[in-house]
Design a protein around this nucleic acid. Structure first.
Lengths: 107, 107
DNA sequence: CTTACCCATAACCCTACAGTTATGAATTAA
DNA sequence: TTAATTCATAACTGTAGGGTTATGGGTAAG
C-alpha cells in the first residue's frame, strides 16, 4: 500500500480535478485564468485543485508576472502504471499456475 | 470524461477498498469472512466495499451455501490503462511536436 | 425443531472535502 | 498614484460516503 499510489488515486478521483489534468496533458501549459474559463467552477476552486495536483506531483507551476502557468508532469503517473501492471500480473500468474496444474493433471 | 473511467477512479480511491481488491488479485477467490478477518474493519463495511467493487465490475461473486466467494476481474482495469496511456500519449505528441519545431528551426 | 453461522441491508453518525464568497498580495496599466 | 487584473488564501457550508451497531434471511449443524 504505497503512499504515492494512495495519493495519486485520491487526487485523480475527483472528476473536476482530473479534467484539469487532462486538459494540461492535451493542450500543454495553461494559466489559471484559462483553466478556470472552461472548468465550470470558480477560480478559487481551480486554484485549490491545482494545489492538490501539485502536491501529488502531477503538475508544475511557473510564475510569470501576475500569472501562474501550470503544466502536466506525466512522469508522476508511473506509480499508477506500476500498480495496474502489478494487479494484472498477479492475475496472469494465477492463470499460469492453473495452466500448469491442468497440464500436470493431464499426464 | 468516460463514465466507466470515472467510476473506476472513484471506486479505487478508497484505500480499504483497494486493499481488498489487491488481496483478491494476489491470492485469488476469497469468502467475505476471510476478507473481513484481515481488513481492519467490520464485516458490514467489507460487504459494502465488495458491493462497490462489484458495481464497478472489478469483482465477481459466487454463492455457495451460506458463503459468498468473491474474485477479482482484472479486465475491468482496462479503462484505467487506456486513460493512462492516453495521458502519456498526449505528452509524447507534444514532445514530438516540439522536436519537429526545433528541427525546423535548425535548418 | 432449534441453534449457530455467514452474509447483506438498514439506520445512523461523523468526518473529509469540494464548492462557495470575501479578501488580500503582487503585478501591470492608466 | 490610482485603478485594474491575476491568483492564492481564509472562512464557511453542504454533502457524499466510510465507519459503526442492529437486525434479518438463508443455510448448515445439533
Amino acid at each position: 500500500m504505497s503512499a504515492a499510489t494512495d495519493l495519486l488515486f485520491r487526487t485523480l478521483a475527483d472528476p473536476t480535478r482530473r479534467a484539469i489534468f487532462e486538459r494540461l496533458c492535451r493542450e500543454g501549459e495553461q494559466t489559471v485564468g484559462a483553466l478556470t474559463a472552461r472548468s465550470g467552477v470558480s477560480q478559487p476552486a481551480v486554484s485549490k485543485h491545482l494545489g492538490a495536483l501539485k502536491q501529488a506531483g502531477l503538475v508544475r507551476d511557473r510564475h510569470e508576472g501576475r500569472q501562474t502557468h501550470y503544466s502536466a508532469q506525466p512522469g508522476a503517473l508511473n506509480p499508477l502504471i506500476d500498480w495496474t501492471s502489478q494487479m494484472a500480473g498477479f492475475w496472469q500468474n494465477r492463470l499460469d499456475a492453473l495452466d500448469d496444474l491442468l497440464k500436470r493433471m493431464d499426464q
